[in-house]
Design a protein around this nucleic acid. Structure first.
Length: 721
RNA sequence: GCCGAGGUGGCGAAACGGCAGACGCGGCGGACUUAAAAUCCGCUGCCCGCAAGGGCGUGUGGGUUCAAAUCCCACCCUCGGCACCA
C-alpha cells in the first residue's frame, strides 16, 4: 500500500492526465475476487487444469514460473538462473488458441517486431509424428513417438535420442546400463537451463542399452538419452539422422554411430560428408523412394506412414500452456478446494472472494506460505461439506493484468467484473503503449484472455489492443531509467529542481519516442532555458512599434501575415507530430515558433491583435507538452481556467500557404542557385528565370541544354546534352 | 545461425525521391559585469580560397533516376529478439 501511495505520487508529479476515479488496485479483494471468478470461468470452459509437469523453478523467488517469464535461462524478475522441477501445478490452456494467436489480422497497427516475437514464441512447426516400434520390449507402451520436420530423411535414422526427463527413459534402460543412465539424468536435472542452452557445448549422452525399430525399413536403432533433446518440446524424442542434421551429425561422431546419406547433395559421389547436408536433393538409400525428389518424398511418406498406421502428419507448437500457480504469498489465491471424498472442487461463486490472510509467515520452503496457515488452509468441501484443504498456491500477477482494462470501464461494479455496456462503449483499446519486453508475456496473455472470454460470451471482440506503440527506454549512466526498478538515476530529483514540465519535455525531445535515448544533464538544461525564454516571451505583452527600421503600413501588414502563417504552419506540424507520437519534432516546431515570436517582437512590426492570437495558440499547443507552465501562463495572460479543457486550435490551410518560395536551380542535378520567386509561379516563368541566372549560365558553359525538369513549387533542373 | 531495427556533423537528432544537417547540446567570437555565473547577439559538416565561388560529404561497393540519406542488389558494423525446437 505504501508502494502504491509512492507510485501514485511519482506519477502525479509528472503531470499526466489520468482518470483517478478509475484507479483499480489488483491486490485488493474488490479486484482479485474477479480474478478468482474469471479463473472459475476458465475452469468450467476447460481452459484451466491441474497437472504434473516438469516446470521452471526459480531458486531465489522459491516459486515456479511460466516459460514466458524466463529470460535467457534466468528469472525475469530477479535474474537468478532457473532449474526444472516436476510439480503438480495449475495451467491455462493458451495452446488451444495458438493458431488464432498467430493470426494478427484483427490488429490495426502493431510493431512488426512484436508480431515476430509472438510468432517465434508460439513457434508453429509442421511435420510428422512417427511411431518407432518398441513392442519387443514388452512394455505397456508399444511405440516410441517422435516428431520430425524431415520425414524425407527417415531412412537415414541411425539412432534415437530421448530427453533425460523423458518418461520412457527409465523403462528403456537395461539393468547393466542403469547406473550410468541414472547418473546422467541426475546431472542433467541439476544443470540450470543456461548451461543446457549453450549451443557451443559438446554433445553428451548415454546409451540406454535398448533398441527401437524404424517402421519404414525395420532396422534396429540404439536409443540414447542426451540433453540436446528437450523434454517439453514435441514428444521429447528425436530421431537421429546424422547425415542431414548438424546436431545429430556431431552426436554420431562423438559416439561412433553410422552416418547414412539419404538425400544426395548436388554432385555427391558417394563419399563421406564433412558436415550434415540440410539442403534438397534426390532420395537415396531409401528403399522404394529412391530417386524421388525429397520434397515430393516428404509428402508421399506422410501418406505412406498414415496408411501403415506408423504415424501421421502433425503440428507442433513451441509455446506451452501458461503455468499460473505461484508459491508466493502475494497474489490471488486460486479458488480451489481439495476434498478427500470429492477430489478437486471449485469454490462456489457466492463464496468468493477467497481472502488472502493478512498474517502469513514467510519461510523459504519452496511452498506457498499459505500452506502453513491453518486458518486459511482448513475449510469444508463445497460439495459434501466435509473438512477439506484449500489450494495454497496463488496466481501469477500477469493474470491480473490480462483483463484490467475491462475493469477500467466500470471499476466500481459490485455484482460483476465489468459492465458489458461500458465495455461495449470503450473497448477494444484504440491505442496502447508499453515496452517491447511485454511481447510474449502481458501482450500475449491479454490477447489470449480476450479470445477466451469472447468464446465464453463475456466480451464481443477478439483483440484487446488495436494499435500498439512501443516506447523506448531512456538510459542514464548505463542503466535503464525507470520508476519501478530502484535505479541509479530517477527523474525525481530533476522534477524537484527543474520542474515536471522540463523533465517531460526533455524526455520527449531527446529522440524518437519509440527509440528512447541517453539522459544528459546538459541536454536537459537546454530545455529548461527554452521554457524560461517561453515564460518571458509569453508575459512580455505585445511588441511596441520600433522607431528604427522601415515603418510603413505595407510592411506591418506583411509582418503580421507572416507571423500568422508561421502560427498556422506550426499548428499543423505539432498536431500531425503528436498524432504520430513524434514528440521530438513537435517540440522542435514549437522552439522554431518561439524563435519566430522573439524575432517578431524585436522587430516590433506586428499588430497587438496578431501577437495575442499567436500567444494564445502557442499556449494551447504547449498545453499537452508542458501542462503546468501552459496553465500558469494561461492564467497570467488573463485567460480563464482551465487551458486543459479547451480544444486544440484548428489551423487554416489557406493561411499556411507561403507567398514567396525558394526556387532551387540545379544544373545536372547540382544546386547552382536559389531564387526567391512568387509561390504561384508557372512552369514557363520558372524555367525562364532559372535559365537567366548568372550562376546557371556560367555552369552551362555554352553546352547544349538537353532537358529542363520542373518540379512545381520546388526546383528547376537544367540538364545538358 | 535465424528474424527484426538501425548506421547522417564533436554529440542527441531532422529530412524518408527534389535545398542534407531543421531543432537542441557542445564549441568559438562578441555584448553586459570589477570578475564570474546567468542572460543576450553572431558564427559553427569537412577541405581549398582574401573573396566571389568551388570541391567533398548521410557505414562500404555497385545499380536505377534529370535528381538517391531516401528506391534496388551485395557486403560490413551496432543494437534488440529467438536459438541443440528435432
Amino acid at each position: 500500500m505504501d508502494n502504491i501511495t509512492r507510485m501514485r505520487k511519482q506519477l502525479r508529479s509528472m503531470g499526466p492526465i489520468y482518470d483517478w476515479q478509475r484507479e483499480t488496485i489488483c491486490c485488493e479483494p474488490e479486484y482479485y475476487r474477479w480474478n478468482q471468478w474469471l479463473f472459475l470461468q476458465f475452469y468450467r470452459a476447460g481452459l484451466a487444469y491441474r497437472t504434473r509437469a516438469p516446470v521452471v523453478w526459480c531458486p531465489s523467488c522459491q516459486t515456479v514460473l511460466a516459460n514466458e517469464q524466463v529470460v535467457d535461462g534466468a528469472c525475469e524478475r530477479c535474474d537468478t538462473p532457473v532449474t526444472r522441477r516436476e510439480m503438480e501445478q495449475w495451467f491455462l490452456r493458451i495452446t488451444r488458441y495458438a493458431d488464432e494467436l498467430l493470426d494478427f489480422s484483427g490488429l490495426v497497427d502493431w510493431p512488426e517486431k512484436i508480431l515476430v516475437m509472438q510468432r517465434n514464441w508460439i513457434g508453429r512447426s509442421a511435420g510428422a509424428e512417427v511411431h518407432f516400434d518398441i513392442s519387443h520390449l514388452g512394455l505397456a507402451e508399444r511405440t516410441l513417438p517422435v516428431f520430425t520436420t524431415r520425414l524425407d530423411t527417415i531412412y537415414g535414422v541411425t539412432f534415437m535420442v530421448l530427453a533425460p526427463e523423458h518418461p520412457l527413459v527409465p523403462k528403456l534402460t537395461t539393468p547393466e546400463r542403469r547406473r550410468e543412465v541414472e547418473a546422467y539424468v541426475e546431472e542433467a536435472r541439476r544443470k540450470s537451463d543456461i548451461e543446457r542452452l549453450s549451443t557451443e557445448r559438446e554433445k553428451t549422452g548415454v546409451w540406454l542399452g535398448s533398441y527401437c525399430v524404424n517402421p519404414l525399413n525395420g532396422e534396429k536403432v540404439p536409443i540414447f538419452t542426451a540433453d540436446y533433446a528437450v523434454a517439453w518440446y514435441a514428444t521429447g524424442a528425436v530421431m537421429g539422422v546424422p547425415a542431414h542434421d548438424q546436431r545429430d551429425f556431431e552426436f554420431a561422431h562423438k559416439f561412433g554411430l553410422p552416418v547414412r546419406v539419404v538425400i544426395a547433395p548436388p554432385g555427391w559421389s558417394g563419399g563421406e560428408l564433412s558436415e550434415a547436408y540440410v539442403g534438397d536433393g534426390s532420395m537415396v538409400n531409401s528403399g522404394p523412394f529412391n530417386g524421388v525428389p525429397n520434397r515430393e518424398g516428404m509428402a508421399r511418406l506422410a501418406d505412406y506412414i498414415q496408411q501403415q498406421g506408423a504415424g501421421k502428419s502433425a503440428l507442433v507448437y513451441r509455446m506451452r500452456d501458461w503455468l499460473i500457480s505461484r508459491q508466493r504469498y502475494w497474489g490471488t489465491p486460486i479458488p480451489m478446494v481439495y476434498c478427500d471424498a470429492c477430489g478437486v472442487v471449485p469454490v462456489r461463486d457466492q463464496d468468493l472472494p477467497v481472502l488472502l490472510p493478512p498474517d502469513a509467515e514467510f519461510k523459504p520452503t519452496g511452498e506457498s506460505p499459505l500452506k502453513y496457515h491453518q486458518g486459511f488452509l482448513q475449510t469444508t468441501c463445497p460439495q459434501c461439506g466435509r473438512p477439506a484443504r484449500r489450494e495454497s498456491d496463488t496466481m501469477d500477477t500477469f493474470f491480473d493484468s490480462s483483463w484490467y482494462f475491462l475493469r477500467y470501464t466500470s471499476p466500481r461494479e459490485q455484482a460483476r467484473p465489468w459492465d458489458p455496456s461500458m465495455v461495449q462503449k470503450r473497448l477494444p483499446v484504440d491505442k496502447y503503449t508499453g515496452g517491447a519486453e511485454h511481447a510474449v508475456m502481458h501482450l500475449l496473455y491479454a490477447r489470449f484472455f480476450t479470445k477466451a472470454l469472447r468464446d465464453m460470451g463475456l466480451v464481443f471482440y477478439s483483440e484487446p489492443f488495436l494499435r500498439l506503440f512501443n516506447q523506448g527506454v531512456v538510459i542514464a549512466a548505463g542503466a535503464k531509467m525507470s520508476k519501478s526498478r530502484g535505479n541509479v538515476v530517477t527523474p525525481d530529483p530533476y522534477v524537484e529542481h527543474l520542474g515536471a514540465d522540463v523533465v517531460r519535455c526533455y524526455l520527449m525531445f531527446v529522440g524518437p519516442w519509440d527509440r528512447g535515448g541517453e539522459w544528459s544533464d546538459t541536454g536537459i538544461n537546454g530545455i529548461a532555458r527554452w521554457l524560461n525564454r517561453v515564460w518571458d516571451l509569453m508575459l512580455r505583452g505585445a511588441p511596441v512599434p520600433t522607431t528604427s527600421g522601415p515603418r510603413d503600413g505595407a510592411a506591418d501588414a506583411e509582418a503580421t501575415r507572416t507571423l500568422g502563417r508561421r502560427v498556422h504552419q506550426t499548428l499543423r506540424r505539432v498536431y500531425q507530430d503528436l498524432d504520430k507520437f513524434k514528440f521530438n519534432t513537435a517540440i522542435a516546431a514549437l522552439m522554431e515558433l518561439s524563435n519566430t515570436l522573439q524575432d517578431a517582437w524585436e522587430q516590433g512590426r506586428v499588430t497587438a491583435e496578431a501577437w495575442n492570437d499567436a500567444i494564445e495558440k502557442f499556449l494551447l499547443m504547449m498545453a499537452p507538452l508542458a501542462p503546468h507552465l501552459a496553465e500558469e501562463l494561461w492564467e497570467r495572460t488573463g485567460r480563464p481556467y482551465s487551458i486543459h479543457t479547451l480544444l486544440y486550435p484548428k489551423w487554416d490551410d489557406a493561411l499556411t500557404a507561403e507567398e514567396q518560395i525558394t526556387l532551387v536551380v540545379q544544373v545536372n542535378g547540382r544546386v547552382r542557385d536559389r531564387l526567391q520567386v512568387p509561390a504561384g509561379i508557372g512552369e514557363e516563368e520558372a524555367k525562364r528565370v532559372a535559365l537567366e541566372s548568372a550562376n546557371v549560365r556560367r555552369h552551362l558553359d555554352n553546352k547544349q541544354v538537353a532537358q529542363v525538369i520542373y518540379v512545381a513549387g520546388r526546383l528547376v533542373n537544367v540538364v545538358t546534352g
